[in-house]
Simulated assay, not measured.
Amino acid sequence: MDLMYWSLIGLLFVLAFAALVFPILPGVLFLAAGFAVYGFAFSFAPFNTAFWVIQGILFVSLFAADYAGNALGVKRLGGSRAALWGSTIGLLAGPFVIPFAGILIGPFLGAALAELIVHKKGIKESAAVGIGSLLGFLGSTLIKGIVQVIMIGYFLWHVL
């Protein structure tokens, strides 16, 4: 039975990392579900107040990295609020419209098209905003991956 529970916990953690590539998946919830499965299957005793406070701060940082990375990338290269929305829509829709490459093309196209259509910017300026969106997404994905590794490592440190 222990093997089954640990397999489920491992699967939930893998799904949390899959959410880095498919942002429609709730990565944070998969991490929390992994912690909960451990608690219900084995014990919540290893999870003291400090554990929950630290994990809570890291959970919030995952959301902050998601928003800040995209916003900074778009704003840094002169993008507007419309580009930020376009980038977000492209990020969510891209993997479904263009499998595999859509995760990279979607935010770029969403931001660039928003600048072209809404603010009537030129192709060069719009492409720069699209690149900013893509760089922001890649940076936030890297940060989120690192934070998730820290969260899982901290979890394992408490339970093993």
Rank of each mutant, 00 (worst) to 15 (best):
M4H: 02
W6P: 04
S7K: 00
L8P: 03
I9R: 01
I9V: 09
G10R: 02
G10N: 07
G10E: 03
A19R: 00
V21Y: 09
F22H: 01
L25Y: 02
V28A: 14
L29A: 12
F30V: 08
L31R: 03
A32L: 15
A33D: 12
A36G: 02
V37C: 10
Y38P: 12
Y38R: 07
F42G: 13
F44M: 13
F47G: 14
V53K: 09
I54C: 07
Q55P: 11
G56E: 10
I57V: 15
L58K: 08
A64Q: 08
D66M: 12
Y67I: 15
L72N: 01
G73L: 09
G73R: 03
G78L: 04
S80Y: 12
S80F: 09
R81I: 08
A82I: 06
A83C: 14
W85L: 14
S87Y: 14
T88K: 13
T88Q: 14
L91W: 10
L91G: 13
L92H: 14
F96R: 03
V97S: 00
I98V: 09
I98K: 01
P99T: 05
A101K: 00
I103D: 00
I105P: 06
I105T: 07
G106R: 00
G106D: 07
A111H: 07
A112Y: 09
L113G: 05
E115C: 10
V118K: 11
H119G: 00
G122L: 08
K124A: 14
E125S: 06
E125T: 08
S126I: 02
S126V: 03
A128F: 05
A128E: 09
I131F: 11
I131C: 04
L134T: 07
L134P: 05
L138R: 06
G139Y: 08
G139N: 05
T141I: 10
V147F: 01
Q148G: 06
M151C: 09
L156N: 11
W157A: 15
